[in-house]
């Protein structure tokens, strides 16, 4: 029978389920969140397993910080079968322990590396590409549509960068919002938070000045559209103040 194990979409639950499956020698066909629609030939199984938070520390001490972080990044990715990849990674890590990340010849390791790097890169890009608007009452507001679920990682960056500002970042793809109150940020669903989108008085002028700068700083004798696209893919342009008009 093709057993699909179901979890609640939480990282810690997923790790606990994987550990349970491995301990009991159960081979999943796949592991999916509870929004999954199984086909006729698939059997979905809900396990009620305690959500043990200590598993994070256990993984760090058994496989190392780097492996732990990479697993988390894979979890945040849009990869179709990421849960299953993490299952195989976990299985092999139990054998290789701290050395697991060196085993590039194992498919699950090279997959974890590839996917986690992708998430890491996108996060790094977004630290640069995110654009805030100033709303009334000095609130900074930004929207994005990243390929991977990086709102948490991006928010961590802006906690340090814009420490003494009120800011709000919205992921339009996943309909979630991160809100920062000068102390900490929380991530909530779109419908749980209402915000007046009215811009501050000076906003249009600053955006205008920025566009002037952007247009001026390129050297026309060196024009290189291909290079620009490579570094700043079109999929991000919709929210980038200085280029969205070119779309």
């Amino acid at each position: 029978m093709n057993n699909i194990y179901i979890y609640d979409g939480d990282f810690i639950s997923l790790l606990n389920i994987i550990l349970y499956l491995l301990k009991n020698n159960l081979h999943p066909e796949n592991i999916k969140t509870d929004v999954y629609h199984p086909s006729l030939f698939e059997n979905t199984i809900y396990l009620s397993i305690l959500k043990n938070e200590k598993i994070i520390d256990q993984i760090i001490s058994a496989f190392g910080q780097y492996a732990m972080r990479s697993m988390y990044y894979v979890f945040l990715s849009k990869e179709e079968n990421k849960e299953l990849i993490l299952y195989y990674f976990f299985q092999n890590a139990l054998k290789r322990r701290h050395k697991i990340m060196y085993y590039h010849n194992l498919k699950c390791v090279s997959e974890v590396l590839r996917i986690s790097n992708y998430v890491r890169h996108e996060t790094h890009k977004m630290k640069g590409f995110l654009r805030f608007k100033e709303l009334e009452k000095n609130i900074l507001y930004a929207e994005m549509e990243p390929t991977n679920n990086i709102l948490f990682l991006v928010s961590c960056h802006f906690v340090n960068r814009l420490k003494n500002e009120f800011w709000v970042i919205k992921d339009n793809k996943r309909k979630i919002i991160s809100i920062y109150d000068k102390k900490q940020f929380v991530i909530v669903k779109e419908e749980e938070f209402k915000l007046s989108q009215k811009e501050s008085k000076g906003e249009q002028n600053i955006e205008f000045l920025w566009r002037i700068f952007y247009k001026t700083i390129g050297i026309k004798e060196r024009r290189n559209e291909r290079c620009r696209m490579n570094f700043m893919p079109k999929k991000y342009w919709k929210y980038i103040t200085e280029v969205k008009e070119e779309l």
């Binding site: 790094h124 630290k127 640069g128 590409f129 340090n160 960068r161 814009l162 420490k163 003494n164 952007y214 247009k215 700083i217 390129g218 050297i219 026309k220 060196r222 024009r223 290189n224 559209e225 291909r226 290079c227 620009r228 490579n230 570094f231 700043m232 980038i240 200085e242 280029v243």
Partner: peptide, 27 residues
């Protein structure tokens, strides 16, 4: 540089914010 009570910080790896029409990074 850490932000402390002021505005902003710096990132040790550097961050590109945009790319000009000549493909050069704007940071």
């Amino acid at each position: 540089r850490k932000s402390g009570s002021g505005v902003g910080n710096t990132a040790i790896a550097g961050i590109c914010h945009s790319f000009a029409s000549d493909g050069r990074c704007i940071s």
